[in-house]
């Protein structure tokens, strides 16, 4: 039962990533792509936590934390860049 639920969660996360990827590729504006990127990284954080769970490796959570941190900084920097250049 638990195995089945975890597989279902992994499937849902995968489809969510595909939806976000569609918006990332389609755009149309740069800001749309940034939103899609932001959503993709947040989904990826959950995906990494799920992988840590499946593999039984707590160390992967550090990867998730750093990834969340970098995604935040990335979005802030890109938003500033779109507003008035670097």
């Amino acid at each position: 039962m638990v195995e089945l639920l975890l597989s279902l969660a992994a499937l849902l996360i995968g489809v969510a990533l595909l939806f976000a990827l569609y918006r990332f590729v389609r755009g149309p504006s740069p800001a749309d792509r940034v939103v899609a990127f932001d959503v993709m990284t947040i989904i990826a954080v959950t995906a990494i936590a799920l992988i840590a769970l499946l593999e039984g490796r707590g160390i992967y959570l550090d990867v998730a934390l750093v990834y969340a941190l970098l995604s935040f900084l990335g979005v802030i920097v890109i938003a500033r860049y779109l507003e008035r250049g670097l």
Partner: peptide, 28 residues
């Protein structure tokens, strides 16, 4: 463990909704 797995599925469902919203919504 069962409750945790169910919460994971509910959370993943909301992530899916987010992706779907990104695709369906008309503007930024």
């Amino acid at each position: 463990e069962l409750t945790g797995a169910m919460l994971l599925v509910v959370g993943a469902f909301f992530l899916l909704l987010g992706g779907l919203g990104l695709v369906r919504m008309p503007d930024l």
